[in-house]
Simulated scan of single mutants.
Amino acid sequence: MAIQVFTLSEGSYSVDASKKFIPFDPQKDNPKDRPASLFIHVQPFLVKLENSLVLLDTGLGYSNAEGKLHLHENIRKAGFDPDDVELVLMSHLHFDHSGGMVHQHDGKMELSFPHATYVMQQGEWETAFSSKSSSYCTEIFDFIQRNAQIHLIEDSGKLTNEISYEFTGAHCPYHQVFLIEDGEDKVFFGGDVLPEPEELIRKFVAKYDYDGRKAMELRDDFGLRAAAEKWKCLFYHSKSKTQAFVELNDDKFIIV
């Protein structure tokens, strides 16, 4: 059975120096009203393997008007029960990737995935507690520490027969990426080291990366491997294609 991947789109947001994510609808909102803002899309991914259901990052954790988690509703729309998620794989713990680890409503906090194991790099977990950066929301991690099944990993390695992880750093000091393969398909999740397909086409050093030059080099490296090994790449912040293959044409990447 082929690996099934579902994009769980949480929508489009503007974010400025305050690191607050404000919903942004390009149809009716004017970017000029939000000076010095980055405009980003947020989309975690649900992966159905032969015997397990896996979530890649958890989005912002925002709820709809009825207090239901967008992430849960999107998983249900894909035809699955959020309670059946077994593994939550975290590329890193910045708020736009980790907010949905918990569901906050009516002044209460609960685990979004009570039956899942949350998988994180040990160094990123420690950074999330000690960092003064507003990119991390420590109260989430306090709650996770007390209530969730946690599996801390280090460096690069294999998590299961199908899932391997690679320590990259670059976007933040302990960022990691995941490759999922079943002997037939290969699915690559680059987190914020490869957040958009456009970043393969344009070479640049991004100010928002901890080590921009290394991130640029890694994007190139992953692009070459994706083209050579026919990876389906998942783009967490893409404004266009969220799932795509990469091809190489005269040393230039093409998104297919």
Results as ranks from 00 to 15, higher is better:
19 K>P: 01
42 V>L: 14
255 I>P: 06
86 E>R: 15
218 L>P: 06
217 E>W: 05
244 A>K: 05
116 A>S: 15
28 K>G: 00
232 K>W: 06
64 N>L: 08
118 Y>H: 12
45 F>V: 10
10 E>A: 13
118 Y>I: 15
241 K>N: 09
76 R>H: 05
110 E>Y: 04
128 A>T: 01
201 I>R: 01
25 D>V: 03
207 K>Q: 12
248 L>T: 08
156 S>T: 15
164 S>G: 07
195 P>Y: 11
13 Y>P: 13
216 M>P: 01
126 E>R: 01
161 N>Y: 08
25 D>K: 07
73 E>Q: 13
167 F>C: 13
112 S>Y: 04
249 N>G: 03
205 V>K: 09
181 E>P: 05
185 D>H: 08
254 I>C: 08
6 F>I: 07
12 S>I: 12
147 N>P: 02
222 F>M: 04
34 R>E: 05
12 S>W: 14
213 R>D: 01
167 F>Y: 15
52 S>I: 05
243 Q>E: 14
87 L>C: 07
55 L>E: 02
114 P>A: 15
41 H>P: 04
247 E>T: 14
106 D>Q: 15
61 G>L: 01
6 F>S: 09
168 T>K: 07
145 Q>A: 06
123 G>H: 05
195 P>C: 12
96 D>P: 09
86 E>G: 15
166 E>M: 15
84 D>E: 12
126 E>K: 01
71 L>E: 10
56 L>A: 11
81 D>I: 00
201 I>Y: 00
193 V>R: 02
231 W>S: 08
95 F>R: 11
22 I>G: 01
91 S>N: 15
207 K>V: 10
252 K>T: 14
122 Q>K: 15
181 E>M: 13
117 T>R: 06
33 D>F: 08
132 K>C: 01
178 F>I: 11
186 K>S: 14
35 P>Q: 03
95 F>N: 05
123 G>N: 11
157 G>H: 05
170 A>P: 05
136 Y>N: 04
204 F>Y: 11
192 D>E: 12
143 F>A: 01
254 I>H: 12
39 F>M: 11
251 D>K: 12
44 P>R: 04
28 K>E: 08
193 V>N: 14
16 D>W: 02
119 V>C: 07
99 G>W: 09
142 D>T: 04
62 Y>K: 10
196 E>W: 03
44 P>H: 06
